[in-house]
């Protein structure tokens, strides 16, 4: 293991998706799929040693961030975090996702790393995982039998484990189209400003005046996978959002999370701040229904 010398592997460079799927059918069990490589190559410097790397770099047309009002947002497998941060439409309509990409990693890793890669890595602390789960959506997979969509709610199976089969390529992430009264927010607590999250949270609300018609609340680094906090969502759904209600929701959040101790934080702390963070992202989401993105300070500066 060395942070300077990578283990030896065979590089597969398909030029289209069909070829990629074919190669994965052949080598899938021993292959790692690489988009930006920012996670994979670090993993390989600390112990991972796949026999093959299948790089998506030569497949044209996967680096899109596209939106239409009916189908929502589509992010291609090679679209970088920087592209998402630079996207006016994401900043405008998907505040939680925008902010999760904005605070994710560093400019260099955002220039190489992809949103879909973040989803596929299935880290419970993944910022984009958390935001995407709150927005709600699906991952489009392409395999030997064709394409299939897996709802994000079913995509992460366990720690670092996803519904993607070894012979499938994740082609795109789809997020649902905003409805009237749509707002979202994201927050993470970190040791230093730029850091992996100790805990992160995201909310998407659909408001009808002061009443929360629908809500999706997601939280990361409090369980082996990014969690939907469904009990907490129930507290808010259909109710007028008051400080008291938010406290009730926070209490529900603390019951729902199952955090652990690790090098970044403690289970006790995570449980304690889980409620606080949930309140804050719900408040941010509600604020963003009416106003511009609360995090737009760097856009078009």
């Amino acid at each position: 293991m060395s942070s300077r010398v990578l283990p030896v592997f065979d590089l597969l460079l398909p030029s289209n998706l069909e070829e990629a799927v074919g190669l994965l059918s052949q080598h899938g069990d021993q292959a790692a799929v690489m988009a930006g490589g920012t996670d994979l190559l670090v993993g390989m410097k600390v112990g991972m040693s796949p026999a093959f790397i299948l790089s998506l770099a030569d497949i044209q047309g996967l680096d899109y961030v596209a939106f239409d009002a009916k189908h929502g947002l589509r992010i291609g497998a090679m679209a970088t975090l920087s592209q998402v941060v630079d996207s006016k439409v994401v900043n405008d309509k998907y505040h939680a996702l925008w902010y999760s990409a904005f605070t994710n990693g560093t400019p260099q890793t955002r220039n190489a790393g992809t949103v879909v890669g973040n989803i596929l890595r299935a880290s419970p602390a993944g910022d984009c995982c958390c935001a995407a789960l709150a927005h709600g959506g699906s991952v489009l997979l392409q395999g030997p039998a064709g394409k299939r969509e897996v709802d994000l709610d079913e995509f992460w199976l366990d720690y670092r484990k996803t519904a993607r089969k070894p012979d499938e390529v994740a082609v795109e992430l789809k997020l649902k189209a905003p409805e009237h009264g749509y707002g979202s927010g994201f927050a993470a607590l970190t040791r230093s400003y730029q850091d992996l999250a100790k805990i992160n949270a995201a909310a998407r609300v659909i408001m009808d005046g002061k009443v929360c018609r629908k809500v999706r609340l997601a939280m990361g680094a409090v369980a082996p996978i990014t969690l939907r906090l469904k009990e907490a969502e129930k507290v808010l759904t259909g109710q007028e959002v008051t400080d008291q209600l938010l406290e009730q929701m926070a209490a529900a959040v603390r019951k729902e999370v199952k955090p652990i101790d690790d090098v970044r934080s403690t289970a006790e702390y995570r449980r304690e701040v889980a409620g606080v963070l949930a309140k804050r992202v719900v408040q941010d989401a509600i604020k963003s229904v009416a106003g511009p993105c609360p995090y737009s300070c760097f856009m078009g500066a």
Binding site: S3, V42, R191, S192, Y193, Q194, D195, V263, R264
Partner: peptide
């Protein structure tokens, strides 16, 4: 406020990288 080398009970260091040993950065 931030820095410490962390060891597990076997005496193995858990944070001998910049990813896990954080320092005050430009924005901090």
């Amino acid at each position: 406020c931030m820095e410490a080398m962390i060891y597990d009970e076997k005496g193995l260091c858990l944070n001998n990288t910049f990813a896990d040993y954080r320092m005050f950065g430009p924005s901090d």
